[in-house]
Simulated scan of single mutants.
Amino acid sequence: MENLAPGLTAARAVVLRADRVDAYGRTQLSRMLAGRFERRSFDRVRWDAANAATAVNDTADNVMIGQKGAAKEPHPLDLRFEPELQALVNAADVTEPTAR
Rank of each mutant, 00 (worst) to 15 (best):
V56R: 10
G66N: 03
K68M: 02
F37Q: 05
A70N: 06
D48F: 06
D78K: 10
W47R: 14
L79T: 10
R46W: 01
L85M: 06
E38H: 14
E82C: 06
F37H: 07
W47P: 14
A34V: 15
G66A: 09
A53C: 05
A70R: 09
N57S: 11
L85D: 04
F37L: 15
D43N: 13
L88I: 06
T59F: 00
D48Y: 07
I65Y: 11
A52I: 09
P76K: 07
A91G: 00
D61L: 04
G69E: 05
E84F: 00
D48T: 10
V63I: 12
F81A: 14
P74S: 15
G66Q: 09
A70I: 04
L77P: 12
E84I: 00
E73Y: 03
Q86C: 00
Q67F: 01
V45D: 05
V89N: 00
N62P: 00
M64C: 06
N57Q: 12
D78Q: 08
R39N: 11
N51K: 11
R31C: 14
R36I: 12
H75V: 03
R36G: 09
N51M: 10
L77C: 08
G66Y: 04
R46Q: 03
L85I: 07
K72E: 06
K68P: 00
F37I: 08
S41M: 15
V45N: 06
M32W: 05
N57W: 10
E38D: 14
S30F: 02
R36L: 13
R36D: 13
L77D: 02
A49G: 02
H75I: 06
A49Q: 15
V56Q: 05
T59Q: 02
R80A: 12
G35Y: 14
L77F: 04
A49S: 11
A34R: 15
P83K: 04
D43W: 02
A34Q: 15
K68Y: 09
R46T: 00
M64F: 03
L79C: 10
F81W: 06
A50F: 11
W47Y: 13
I65K: 09
